[in-house]
Design a protein around this nucleic acid. Structure first.
Ligand code: SF4
Length: 378
DNA sequence: ATTGCTGAAGGG
């Protein structure tokens, strides 16, 4: 079984054989994974957005409410009106840090553990398909790539394929009208039971599972992927919704390079309108995700430390989703870590300027002083 | 900042 994925990037397009996956970037070219011949076509596309600097909203720009100058909330200032699934995980680590990464200059240094993690993910991805570059001429093309890569997965499963990696998903969960985009690490299809399981891969520098709080991050990430995928299967996510949030013109003709791949899938669509009609119809022939797994792999030896099922809890997910959304809508300030998690500040590049950390430290010192002052006498 | 006039994710 061969899969094809497309990617658009700055580099020259490359075409591989075997299973192809495509990823697209904001630039002029994309890569398709896989074989030219057939089967799976996976695209990831990128979205467009709008970014802005937060401005004089008081100390560190942390006050809630719209930005004084631009009247934009973080969702619009820092993202282009839609969020990434991974944004929520970052917020769970430290929301204040998320805020700083968007508003303060950061030090450029290569992160070996992240590069290793990326490498391990890429190796697995390429084991499932190859990428083929495509040319991109518009935002519509970029999203068409994502949709074609999702289509490749769907066609793969409907044709008896068992495994897919790096599957793009998107939607606006929980009727909040906030658009989310993400990429699922891995889906496995069992034709016998007609079930699809999801697996989220995390690599580790130490030979141990992460702390509870990090495990929680990974679980929420996996649950959100399921939610987005299931909404697609259920037909909750419509092309109009996608077009509105991503500011896309459904009728705009797709570029030549994209059209060729559309043709290869046996489709006649010339624009996103027809392409999404097709894919949204087709995905409803699949089934919602059954089991969720998080796999931890040791970076040095590539050995799997654990591969455990996690429980999907929709009400829990919804609660978290709405809480973290408040930050993006300026309905509350960014929250930093509590004193129990001050260890996170140790390696944080913003520690020396972090207002939150300073305040927490002072509060803590104050409490201790109180205790010492009152303590001996009572 | 890798890519940030911003692709998702990459680990802690
Ligand atoms: S110093 Fe601590 S509280 Fe401040 S941004 Fe970093 S991790 Fe968050």
């Amino acid at each position: 079984m061969r899969a094809l994925a497309i990617s658009a990037g700055m580099a020259a397009p490359t075409i591989d054989n075997d299973d192809l996956l495509v990823s697209s970037n904001i630039t002029h070219e994309t890569n398709l994974w896989g074989d030219d011949d057939d089967d799976l076509l996976l695209f990831h596309a990128v979205a467009d957005g709008v970014g802005e600097e937060p401005t004089g909203q008081g100390e560190c720009g942390r006050f809630p409410g719209k930005d004084a100058d631009t009247q934009l909330v973080p969702l619009e200032k820092f993202r282009h009106g839609y969020l990434w699934v991974s944004d929520f995980g970052q917020q769970m680590w430290c929301e204040q840090k998320v805020f700083y990464t968007f508003t303060l200059p950061t030090v450029v240094e290569e992160d070996v553990k992240m590069m290793k993690g990326t490498g391990l993910h890429l190796a697995r991805e390429l084991a499932a398909h190859e990428t083929v570059p495509v040319n991109i001429t518009s935002s519509e093309d970029i999203w068409a790539v994502k949709i074609l890569n999702l289509l490749a997965t769907i066609q793969n499963f409907l044709n008896g394929g068992l495994l897919a990696r790096e599957i793009p998903v998107f939607g606006a969960p929980f009727s909040e009208d906030v658009f989310m985009v993400g990429i699922i690490d891995e889906l496995r299809f069992d034709p016998e039971s007609y079930t699809i399981d999801l697996s989220e891969l995390k690599t580790r520098t130490t030979k141990s599972n992460p702390s509870k709080c990090q495990q929680k991050q990974h679980e929420v990430q996996a649950m959100l992927y399921k939610k987005l995928f299931d909404d697609l299967v259920k037909g909750v996510t419509s092309k109009e919704l996608v077009a509105r949030h991503l500011k896309l013109d459904l009728g705009r003709p797709l570029g030549e390079s994209i059209r060729q791949h559309v043709d290869k899938h046996g489709l006649s669509a010339v624009s996103l309108d027809g392409l999404m009609d097709h894919i949204f119809g087709m995905i409803q022939g699949l089934t919602c995700i059954s089991q969720l797994f998080v796999e931890y792999v040791f970076q040095d030896t590539h050995e799997t430390l654990s591969h455990n099922e996690i429980q999907y809890c929709e009400s829990d997910l919804e609660g978290q989703f709405k809480h973290y959304l408040q930050f993006w809508r300026s309905q509350r300030l960014a929250e930093g870590v509590e004193i129990e998690e001050a260890w996170k500040c140790q390696k944080c590049e913003f520690a020396s300027v972090c207002d939150w950390r300073k305040r927490k430290g002072e509060e803590y010192a104050m409490k201790n002083m109180e205790k010492n002052r009152l303590g001996p006498q009572f």
